[in-house]
Write a protein that binds this DNA or RNA. Structure first.
Lengths: 93, 93
DNA sequence: AATATTATTCGTACTTTTGCGAACAATTTT
DNA sequence: AAAATTGTTCGCAAAAGTACGAATAATATT
């Protein structure tokens, strides 16, 4: 879970996920035009999201198409919601 | 939101939050006995959670008592759930 | 085959994070 | 007042994260 949260802990990466969610753009190039980072930096962030299992990328020449990894995302959702209810339940102190 | 996620992106900090949620321990000393880090390191993590607004600490001599920051936590919950539904809705690609 | 397009990897620099022990502060107990 | 307890801050070191441009790879176009 820490791994997932860590991957979510950067504005650019959150922006990427929201773009993918809104289907406004799925392609590296499109994101690159919108996000204020160099292409190489964007690649790094995309890789981190991929390594964390949050997205998938497929090479559709000459571009790369990125998608949400729905299975893992369901897991993320589950974990976070578990934490939320845990925290909701109790009045600590 | 990135700030919150970042704060959640470390195993020790997640453990702290779960302890607070379970009320198993609210005191620095108690956590220090369970978590495999030096006291100074624990202080750092507690500080980061505090700076992120996820917990609160009050000094009750001679110990320090930590609690969940419920208001901010509600915000966190809201933000994450918004992202979850955003990601649920669409079939990207 | 040469060129153009797209994206990744490489090399580099800088900043932040993580972690520890020692020193320090604050309070309570002796 | 001295000693003990509790937790933070300081100083340092190692590791990871962030970012860029240049070089590289892979494919499509000319």
């Amino acid at each position: 879970m820490a791994r997932f949260a860590k991957a979510l802990g950067h504005p650019v990466r959150l922006a990427i996920l929201q773009m993918l969610a809104n289907q406004t753009c799925c392609y590296h190039g499109d994101m690159s035009e919108i996000l204020p980072v160099a292409k190489s930096t964007l690649s790094q962030h995309l890789n981190e999201l991929k390594d964390a299992g949050l997205i998938q990328g497929t090479f559709t020449p000459p571009t790369v198409k990125y998608c949400i990894n729905n299975q893992n995302w369901a897991l993320v959702k589950k974990m976070f919601e578990a934490l939320f209810t845990e925290l909701d339940n109790e009045e600590c102190c």
